[in-house]
Structures are given as structure tokens and as C-alpha cells.
Design a binder for these strands. Structure first.
Lengths: 205, 205
DNA sequence: GCGGAATTCAGGTGATCGCCTGATACTTCC
DNA sequence: GGAAGTATCAGGCGATCACCTGAATTCCGC
């Protein structure tokens, strides 16, 4: 068992919680995404618990990279806050377990145990998030690409160039995004997208 | 001792950590800001540990409101991520202790104990944050006001109206903000401000 | 097959932005 | 008492945005 979480306090709690059940042995803790990849590649643990928000690389990136080096490792993502879209992405990417930090300690331990024994489990609160009447806005692939280009500081024209389409196409997507989010400027569009969990302001550029 | 944190898992870890030292007794845990205020008003605990990001009311709001009802309570803010500006605001508001979740468990317990015994303590990692060579951009009061107006979806003109100044004044402030943040559009300006901790995308409007 | 959604692009128009120079007035600080 | 910084506003100009109608293509589901 390897624990990757940038909050030392959370790592400690997790180790404490898992130590109570004597089935697992924590072989290490790391506090950033890059070290997590390195450590998993080296130690090839049975199981790794990943935070989503970490410096260096986020939980999804760590999972995708680390499983190539250690295919036998089973992965649980433990995150504080997540949008339904993020969780869906993780599940589609083939992660073995997901739970949120607003789950109770026993729920978290149970998810980890289930995942270690070969199952794929979505924790209670994460399931609630997925089932919740989705107030999230449905955004298509191209729209998301436009959104991210604009978030990187592109104008319509330069975004068009970087996406290899006409400026008018970018204009179309942006206009439909603004209608979906009910805003009237690119500026508020980006903020709304951040609120909706479609953009992560800390990991742009 | 009352614990307010929207992540049940963190509350559990905190209770566990504090239970080891037998000086404190956890009298309750709540998972949102409103309940925290209600509970502190009712129980008047010696000490309360507040998360910053909570539904209902954030740690600062809980602190300001709760101390009016329970002036004897000592408050520790325990947060995952915070900008230097946020921490400074909290300290200026008179909070008794601040620590981050990337502090170790023993550091957190130590801060809580010190605060309970009457001192005012800033945890190690929070101090590091404050001392860090401030890459943050210095923004004046008016500039911040303009920033917030724009974040609410105002155009230059409507922002000017809501601030009671000429559109040209707003234009001036926005231009100087864009120079400070080295961006070239209002859209990226807002994202940069979010990254810098000047705007909270979840609490706009 | 056919409706519908997604993606692509065009033309056009008025509003707005981004940025420039320059001015006045008020603090603050040495 | 000047220097520096902030806040206020003006005029102007080209680039860009916001929004409209319209249309061709592809792909998916019923």
C-alpha cells in the first residue's frame, strides 16, 4: 500500500485508519504526483491511494502513467472535492476505486479493502455525486477544447489557429457555450466553467 | 473542542489525533458552516477547529459570527489550501491559530494545544506560506473592486455604473490590472486572479 | 431512412475591448 | 516641498467580441 496525498495530515489519518485493519501494510507516503509515479514504478505496491489534487501531477495523470509501469497495482482515488465529470473520467479510465473525503473513515477503509481484494468500488458519497440530478452543463468535446484554448489566453483567432479550424468555428462554439452557461462574456464564461469543474485554474498553461 | 470540517474523513483523523493527547475532549463535529455557528453558539466550547472551505459559510465567516456568540471560545483554522492573502485576513481578524493540512499530525496537535492554553500560533507550513517570496501581485482596493465587478459578469460600462464611476476609470483599473498580471484579455485576467487567490469562483454572485 | 445533434464555416453589424497619450487631484512619504 | 503612487476622467482608434441568420457535412439513434 502506497499513499499519495499532498496533505501530510490526511496521509497520517489514512495510514492510521488502515493500520487498524491488519490486512494492509503502508510501505510509503509521498506528497506530490511525480514522486508518486516514481515510487509506484519502483515499489510496485499491491495498492495505491491517490489524492486528485497534488502538485506535479494530478491523480488521474498519476494513475494513467503509473499503471503502465506497475500493471499489478490497484488504484483508489481519494479526493476532497470532485465534479461528477471528473469522477466519470476516472471510472472510464479504469480506476479501481473512488471515494471522497466526506465519506466516513470506515467507508474509506472498506472501499480500500474491497479494491485490494479485486473488486471495483465507488464510495457512497461519490455515488451520490454521480446520481445527483445533474445541474452540470453538457459540454461537447470541441466546446471543451475551445474552452481550454480560451482559458490559456487565446483570442478567438489564435484559438482557431491552435485548434486548426476557422475563427468562425471557434466563435460558434464559444457562442453556444455562452448560451449553455447563460453568460454574456468570455470572461464570465471561463469563471462559470471553473465553477462547473470543467477548468482547473491552477493547472492552466 | 468542536470540529467543523465538511470532510468526515478529516474530522475523524483530527478527533483521533487529538484523542491521543488526553487534554482535549471532542464534544461534537459538524460538516457545514451554518451548523458550526449554531453549534458553537449552543455548546460554547473552549476551542473550535474550523475548516476554511465549507458549504454554508467559510471558516472566516464562521469565526466572525461565532465569536460574537461565544467570546470565550478559541479558534483554530485548519485548511487544505490557502493563499497568503487569506491567511493574513484571518490573522488580522484575530483568529487564534492557523495551520494547513500539509502540516504533520503532531504539528497540528501542537498548534491546537498551544491555542487552547491561550497562545496565538501560526503553524509551520502557514508561516512558510507567509514568508515565501511573495509572487503575488499587489492590487489596490479599487482595482480589486473592479476585478470583482467584472467577475460578476459586468461589462466595463455596467461595472462603472455599479461602482459609481466613469467607464473610463474602470478601463484604467482594468488596464493596469492586466499589465500587473501580464495578460491580454479580461478573460485571462479573471483566471489569473482566481489563481492568485484574489477571487473565489465558487462564491461569486 | 430520417430527425437530431455536433461540427464546420460564412457574412454582417453594432457594441465592446485593449491600449495609447495626457490631464487633474489627492495621499503619503522622505 | 517635491516625488511617487493612486484614483479619477477624456479622446481616439483599430481589433475583437457578441450575436444574428443561414448552410453543408457527418454521425448516431430510432
Amino acid at each position: 500500500m502506497l499513499i499519495a496525498d499532498d496533505h501530510a495530515f490526511v496521509s497520517w489519518g489514512l495510514a492510521k485508519a488502515l493500520a487498524a485493519s491488519d490486512e494492509v501494510e503502508v510501505v510509503g507516503t509521498v506528497t506530490n504526483g511525480i514522486n508518486a509515479i516514481v515510487e509506484i514504478r519502483k515499489a510496485k505496491p499491491d495498492c495505491a491511494i491517490l489524492d486528485y489534487n497534488m502538485p506535479g501531477a494530478n491523480g488521474l495523470e498519476v494513475f494513467l502513467e503509473a499503471k503502465r509501469w506497475s500493471p499489478g497495482t490497484r488504484f483508489v482515488l481519494l479526493t476532497g472535492t470532485a465534479s461528477p465529470a471528473t469522477i466519470r473520467t476516472l471510472v472510464e479510465a479504469g480506476i479501481h476505486g473512488v471515494c471522497l473525503k466526506d465519506d466516513t473513515e470506515s467507508e474509506v477503509v472498506e472501499v480500500v479493502r474491497q479494491v485490494c481484494s479485486g473488486r471495483t468500488v465507488i464510495g457512497a458519497s461519490a455515488q451520490r455525486l454521480l446520481k445527483a440530478p445533474s445541474e452540470s452543463v453538457a459540454v461537447t468535446d470541441r466546446e471543451l477544447a475551445v474552452l481550454q484554448a480560451l482559458a490559456r489566453g487565446h483570442t478567438n483567432a489564435s484559438a482557431a489557429e491552435s485548434l486548426g479550424v476557422s475563427p468562425k468555428t471557434v466563435d460558434s462554439h464559444r457562442t453556444s457555450l455562452m448560451r449553455k452557461f447563460a453568460v454574456n462574456s468570455t470572461a464570465s464564461l471561463l469563471l462559470a466553467a471553473v465553477r462547473a469543474g470543467l477548468l482547473d485554474p491552477t493547472s492552466i498553461r
